[in-house]
Design a protein around this nucleic acid. Structure first.
Lengths: 294, 294
DNA sequence: TCATGCACATCAGTATTTCTGATGCAGGGT
DNA sequence: ACCCTGCATCAGAAATACTGATGTGCATGA
């Protein structure tokens, strides 16, 4: 079992096809077949059904290991490469949309103007993708947000090897349609909303799992899943009554047809954290400094 | 960069010698040389100094990634193997010494007597080793302990893919020599002891890092490090005045020359957790059931 | 200062592995 | 029933990885 075989396996599972995976990897279909056969012989278990191509139970299990494993392999290479050749002229930011609070965007803009020859870039993506980007060196910093108890760090998987730094904390608000019966309230307790209809938008807002663990509740049933990072679309859905979601209180200002009500109980906050490699480049340190002063 | 090269690299770093690593791996010295050369060429960075053989900065960085990576590779294989062929007649327990509270040992003994043909084994080791044993399939369950805030889970690295289950919680006590000025107290606050002399015995008691984070303090300076899992030796050291350590209150009963004083502030407990793979064998479930009833 | 030995590097040759391209074979669609 | 698509298999070629022999540089000690 080697990493190349694992990469082939993951690719086949993703493409649901040996030949497509072969093309994607630049191999012949024959080679892919042999990789999978070798893996299955090694582990003494069928990993994929053929026709249709789909992971077996053992395959699913292996996939869960293989994906992070390959990611960490890339991370290891990137980590050494960073040490060898830092890129001080670049500031590539990968961030979850909820992390783009006014304070953060101001700091980004200032970093840009204060160092005119800095090549800056910003990519909005899900939390996992942002972490991955920093791990593999595609980005220099990640900005991620979430809804957690005031003293807890954000739960981020795979972020060992990265330094996390809180850069913003504000009340967490529920977004409600303006016509919602609770829209008139000035504050709300999360427990009051456990039975409500929620939209789970893990890449555009705080994942419902975070609310569930913060409220220590089994509620927050998901009837609607929203995939993507566009917060406007999410707001429109909330306004249209598809369900509720959360946001940082400041991010919820002036949304037409929507009301944001801060949550007071449990003691839960919307926190933004900055993640950077343990050997950050100077633009990253500068950004950290700007955010700290803000 | 493949896993075999990484394994060679780690072995060389551990042995501080190419030839010794070659012998350990069953290769020739030449092959090891070529592995390292290939890695260094691939990453475009020297990883080891020669004469003496020691990791460079880049090498250190790579090592930090390589060790967990190789561990997870083993874990992946073990996870699939478990699915293929569960071992229902075996109960191999790996546990930190502090996890062997009376309740736990009683449950282990009962599991043994209730299923006479069960092949049981118990291995006492450090936390990391216990986690590793379960990951690689060498053990079926791990029992680990630690000192944490009442609501927090134990901080265990690499224990993704494992299910954790609290199986015991009791007050955390400081072990003091009977002659210690504070030995007469019925309770103590951790802050009172931040400036004391401590023994860091990460494999025999709660690591001082856990106390530091629970107390949110920078204290607990380490003047003495104790390596190993023998709690008796540690007790003797404490009695002899080498420094303080912690234990579950119940574990501290009747230690000659020692006094155990429970800590009341911050709200910190000694918690034992059981870790098992997501597909536990029936003896593991039985043990869990016994511990839950206890 | 120089001989010596040790330990890693290098090299050439061989063994092994891993590809490719051709062909085989089984299901699903027409 | 037929073909078409897509995975399996096979043989040969290419690449790679290992061994054993030899080279080289450093440390040691006289």
């Amino acid at each position: 079992m080697n990493s190349q075989q694992l990469r082939t396996f993951v690719t086949v599972a993703d493409h649901r096809s040996f030949s497509a995976a072969a093309q994607a990897l630049g191999y012949t279909q024959s080679a892919v077949s042999q990789h999978i056969a070798a893996l299955e012989a090694d582990l003494e278990a069928p990993l994929l059904t053929r026709r249709p191509v789909a992971p077996t139970e053992a395959g699913e299990r292996l996939l869960e290991h293989a994906r992070p494993l390959l990611l960490r392999l890339d991370a290891a290479r990137a980590d050494v490469a960073r040490l060898r050749r830092p890129r001080p002229g670049r500031l590539a930011v990968a961030g979850a949309p909820g992390a783009l609070t006014p304070a953060v965007t101001r700091a980004l803009a200032r970093a840009r103007t204060e160092s005119p020859q800095l090549v800056a870039s910003m990519r909005v993506c899900g939390r996992g993708e942002a972490v991955q980007a920093v791990l593999t060196g595609a980005a220099d910093v990640a900005l991620v947000d979430g809804a957690v108890a005031a003293t807890d760090p954000l739960p981020l998987s795979g972020a060992d090897f990265l330094t996390a730094l809180p850069v913003g904390e504000e009340p967490l608000a529920v977004l409600l349609p303006a016509a919602h019966p609770l829209a008139g309230r000035t504050t709300l307790r999360l427990a009051d909303l456990a039975a409500a209809r929620w939209i789970d938008a893990p890449d555009a807002a705080a994942p419902l799992a975070q609310l569930r663990s913060a409220a220590q509740s089994d509620g927050f049933g998901v009837q609607f899943t929203y995939t993507g990072t566009d917060t406007r679309g999410l707001s429109l859905l909330v306004a249209a009554g598809a369900g509720l979601t959360t946001a940082a209180l400041s991010a919820a200002a002036d949304l037409p047809g929507l009301t944001a009500v801060p949550i007071t109980e449990p003691r839960i906050v919307h926190r933004t954290e900055l993640l950077h490699p343990r050997t950050p480049t100077s633009p990253v340190l500068e950004l950290v400094e700007l955010l700290r002063r803000a």
